[in-house]
Simulated scan of single mutants.
Amino acid sequence: MAKTEQVGNTSNIHLRGMLLDVLELAFPPEEIGTDKLSQFYLELHQKEMAKKHGDYNLDTHLIRLFNLSRPYKHIIISGLHELAHHIEATLHGETKHQERFYGYLHQLMLTAMSMEIITKMDAIDEQANPDLDKLEKFFGKIAYWQFNKIPYKQNKCHIRILRAYEWRDILKGFGYSYLTLEQVWMKEFEIANQQVEVDALMALGIPKNNIVIQSATEIEADFFYYLVIRNAYDHREYLRSIGYRYGGYGKGDRNWVKKIMARDLAAEKELVANLMGVAAKVMR
């Protein structure tokens, strides 16, 4: 739990929708006796932190997730952790890392496994799941957890439009949502209708290569970071050669900036780790 600062963030309608689907299957409103559990907000932050992957604000019902350079399944598990805080806070007025909290997290994780959003292998990865020891203390080895599969969006697909600034108003009118940190427009469709939609998009002039179709059960996402290098005058030629732009992307007139995939952050930092006197950081 934490107080929040409303800066440098973005909502992610895709991930929130997925967490909401898990929540409503794990804790149906008619069984819980309230629909307040669905009243939460989600923000993803371009912020790398050493000691925590997310937090929950009891007063505003806001979940924040950090460290987007991690695999997407790890981010989902962090979302489930914070969602368990939301459940406990909503039902009991407080939330702590005690057995009741882990009971809620256990039910969320079982449900996500039954929907095939995450696997047992994801859950026993200590980097993905810092709660592993506590969950296994209260509920036994994850390898022995039992659940029945729940069909989840088997007939759905996502159409994602890349490099679509020129068509942004049209896509918004067509019901697409813009995912800021992924820099794509996305909408969910029945698989049977996907070709009709693709034909309509191409008729508008959107190149076929800009249109990506994914099964709705492909739980993956790629986020963008801006890596900013300061005090780098002596290294300008090297930085230019590996794709940095001086004063690029509106991140400061005297900064060298490169847009990278968040998952490439560690590798990119290695490229500049030995440059004398420079400071590299992720900028929103």
Rank of each mutant, 00 (worst) to 15 (best):
T95K: 00
K36Q: 15
H53L: 09
K36S: 15
L37D: 03
E94D: 15
Y56Q: 07
L83W: 02
L44Y: 03
E99Y: 05
Y72G: 04
K36H: 15
E43T: 12
L80C: 07
L65V: 07
S38P: 00
S78W: 00
H85N: 13
Q46R: 14
H53T: 09
D55E: 14
L37H: 03
D35Q: 06
T60S: 15
A89N: 15
T34M: 04
T95G: 01
A89E: 09
K47A: 07
A84N: 06
S69H: 12
L42Q: 04
P71W: 08
S38C: 08
N57L: 03
Q98R: 14
H86D: 11
S38L: 13
G93V: 05
S69R: 10
K52F: 10
E82N: 07
A84P: 00
Y104A: 04
L83K: 01
I76Y: 00
H53Q: 08
T95N: 04
K36C: 12
Y102W: 05
Q39H: 15
E88F: 00
T95I: 02
Q39R: 15
L58T: 14
L83D: 02
R64S: 12
H97Y: 07
T90M: 00
Q98D: 14
L65E: 06
H74G: 11
Y72A: 10
A84T: 05
D59L: 14
K51G: 13
L42T: 08
L68K: 06
T34S: 15
A50P: 07
H74F: 09
T95E: 01
R70H: 05
A50D: 12
Y72R: 08
H81L: 01
H92K: 14
P71M: 09
G79Y: 03
R100A: 11
F101M: 09
H86Y: 10
R100S: 12
R70E: 09
K47F: 11
D55I: 01
L83P: 01
E82Q: 10
